[in-house]
Design a protein around this nucleic acid. Structure first.
Length: 646
RNA sequence: GGGCCCGUAGCCUAGCCAGGAUAGGGCGCCGGCCUUCUAAGCCGGUGGUCCGGGGUUCAAAUCCCCGCGGGCCCGCCA
């Protein structure tokens, strides 16, 4: 009989055997789950393949060390696939019979072939993943790139496991930022991008210019007002002005005419901020002339979509925020809110106050409201009658659940939005949408910063995904040229895979300090390294004409790195299952690296296809095949391109 | 001021939630290996006050307390 998960089965068999031993010799009932939990892998292979720290069990069970050690040892000896059991200090260690275990792993691999390790959920669900959702005011920068890579990974692994996943991008075209862009766009007479420049790049510069000029004019006034007064307030204002001038100068280098014209035009405006607020108000209330916000957003989105396509990311649905308003969904939310017992007038404007709700500790837990996080009332409507982002997000969340008939909604959103996301869940609950409140999951990730500076879209300070992909591609093409195998298409795919690898290799809850020169260093522990290793394994298999499964002999399976590789291959289904549950891409990346490293070392150490012994050759090819399958499936889950040749 | 996250070699990072063996990797740097299956590779060398101080424990990178350093949030922005 073959198994879908050799490693897990091994742990279960061992745990059950030990559990039986406990009840037989000590009359103690020990659940095998508990034993599975304490089984660990020794830091060095020479200690064994698996080990059990006896004190952990004896403490937990309240039994004497010697008794526990003896039972564990006896239990392990009764397992057929274990060849040796030793006692080292507080540990009982077990060695796996590599030949027997290899037969289990390779049989499973043979039967499941390409599907080996792909997790299958028992109850597929309809799930929505909302990701990227970058504001349509500038190109995707590496921060949104991190979001894109993470969101797409979630989509891919959930889909692989059998869930029905819908990908959505929320276009926030009603926000203040689009209003700034539209303001600048109008002042320049609705210009089109110059020949050859992507719209997102061009309008991103206009957005930054407009925002910076507005801030700069205000900073100037402030400096003048403080001139008489002097002191540190004055010098602070001066420094602020200086920094804005620096930013504007940098933007001006890119679009000098536009910047000059904007300075002139915006200076004529008595109150630019009021004009921008008017634009927003008109847009929300359906005034035709404010459609310029939609117009310019659409242009920027063209560029963003192009970048996403380059990254290999496709969305199922593009949701326009303004459509929610047109459809009356936002109004409906406001009506519900007014009827809610949590409705209040906070500083003169409509709001939801969660004070009472938050007293319920159990609710806090169910809605995953971070411990100790203070939640101020959620203001729903500005004093000029326009709504706020989170208000519209309530409507949007309900729409996502309703349209997709979703059981769960993942929002991939930066960690800085923890508070509004918590308010969103509370608001859903307060409005009576308990199911939606409990099943809206904020998948947060940390910021991406640049080596020297912080990123700021408003100031035009960012590294774009496009530029980074271009540079990575250049670097890859250089290497290809050296090797005499230049291919634009493959280079493009390697570049985007390298990008995804980079974004997924560190834990999402760790700040990423981004360094372009490091991102371009394509060696070990990189996307290309994995793709290269995979192609290498495939090349061996192709030359050998596939795996001669009928010739397969297991007797060489215990030697050196072959043993190690079989061990790793056996673990793959277990690793995938864990990654599916935790949604932590970095664990899969680490596993993938380990497999690639071990395979490459082995590849250098002994011949595979050229092995003369027939049975051993078949074994080696089967292992190589296993490596190709686990690397391919890992890459698929991570959204990397699986290339047969590089 | 309050809250959340992070701190492991020159740099990046795993391990921390569920304490257990000599803290795993990678980059960089130095030296070697292309007439054998893809050298984007392999082999060897180099490098650690696990931020600091206490505590709990047979055992602490891991748990607790007090600090220090960095990031983020605490807006009628998103």
């Amino acid at each position: 009989m073959t198994t879908a998960d050799p490693y897990r089965d091994l742990l279960k068999t061992i745990a059950e055997s030990i559990s039986r031993e406990f009840s037989q010799s000590l009359g103690t009932d020990v659940p095998s789950d508990l034993i599975v939990r304490v089984i660990e892998e020794p830091p060095l292979r020479k200690f064994g393949d698996l080990g059990i720290p006896v004190p952990r069990l004896s403490k937990e069970l309240g039994l004497k060390f010697q008794e526990v050690a003896a039972s564990v040892e006896a239990g392990l000896r009764n397992v057929n696939v274990i060849s040796k059991v030793t006692r080292v200090g507080p540990y009982v260690d077990a060695f796996i019979d590599a030949e027997k275990y290899a037969s289990k792993v390779l049989e499973s691999l043979k039967e499941l072939s390409e599907n080996y390790g792909v997790p299958r959920v028992e109850e597929p669900q309809k799930i929505v993943v909302e990701y990227v959702s970058a504001n349509p005011v500038h190109p995707l920068h590496i921060g949104s790139g991190r979001n894109a890579a993470i969101g797409d990974f979630i989509y891919r692994i959930l889909s692989m496991a059998g869930h029905n996943v819908e990908r959505r991008y929320y276009v926030d075209d009603m926000g203040l930022q689009v209003a700034y862009l539209a303001y600048g766009y109008l002042k320049l007479g609705r210009p089109n991008p110059p020949e050859g420049m992507k719209p997102d790049k061009y309008y991103g510069l206009i957005y930054a210019a407009a925002a910076t000029i507005v801030d700069l004019l205000e900073a100037k006034k402030k400096v003048e007002a403080l001139k008489e007064k002097g002191g540190h307030e004055y010098s602070d204002a001066l420094r602020e002005l200086d920094s804005l001038m620096g930013d504007l100068a940098r933007i001006r280098e890119r679009i000098p005419e536009e910047v000059d014209e904007l300075i002139e035009e915006i200076s004529k405006d008595e109150d630019p901020r009021a004009s921008i607020a008017t634009l927003m108000r008109n847009y929300e209330f359906g005034n035709e002339e404010a459609q310029v916000m939609r117009e310019v957003s659409e242009k920027v989105m063209e560029g963003i979509k192009e970048t996403l396509t380059r990254l290999g990311i496709n969305m199922d649905v593009w949701d326009w925020e303004s459509d929610l308003v047109r459809e009356g969904l936002v109004r409906k939310v406001l009506e519900e809110a007014r009827k809610s017992q949590y409705f209040t007038i906070h500083r003169g404007v409509p709001a939801l106050d969660f004070k009472e709700l938050l007293k319920d500790k159990d609710l806090r837990r169910r809605l995953r409201i971070p411990e100790g996080l203070e939640i101020p009332p959620l203001i729903l409507v500005r004093s000029d009658g326009t709504t706020l982002y989170t208000t519209r997000d309530i409507a949007y969340t309900l729409k996502k659940f309703r349209e997709a008939q979703a059981k769960k909604v993942y929002n991939v959103i930066a960690i800085e939005q923890t508070l509004p996301q918590a308010q969103l869940r509370l608001a859903l609950y307060a409005l009576g949408h308990k199911f939606e409140a409990e099943n809206t999951i904020h998948y947060s990730y940390e910021m991406v910063n640049l080596v020297g500076a912080s990123m700021a879209g408003r100031r035009g300070r960012y590294v774009t995904v496009d530029d980074l992909l271009d540079q990575m591609k250049e670097r890859i093409l250089d290497i290809m040229s050296e090797r005499g195998s230049r291919s634009e298409d493959i280079a493009e795919k390697m570049a985007r895979s390298a990008f995804r690898y980079m974004m997924l290799s560190t834990s999402p809850n760790k700040t990423l300090v981004f360094d372009v020169s490091k991102a371009l260093n394509i060696r070990q522990a990189s996307g290309p390294y994995i793709q290269y290793t995979y192609a290498r394994a495939k090349a061996v298999l192709t030359k050998a004409g596939g795996v001669p499964w009928n010739k397969l002999e297991f007797k060489g399976a215990g030697k050196g790195l072959r043993r190690e590789l079989i061990w790793l291959l056996g673990k793959f289904p277990h690793v995938m299952k864990r990654v599916l549950e935790s949604l932590r891409p970095e664990d899969l990346v680490a596993y993938m690296n380990k497999v690639a490293d071990t395979f490459n070392t082995w590849y250098g150490a002994e011949p595979i296809a050229k092995e003369v012994d027939e049975g051993l050759r078949a074994l080696k090819l089967a292992i190589t095949y296993g490596v190709s399958v686990v690397l391919a499936n890992s890459m698929k889950a991570l959204g990397m391109d699986v290339l047969e040749r590089v």
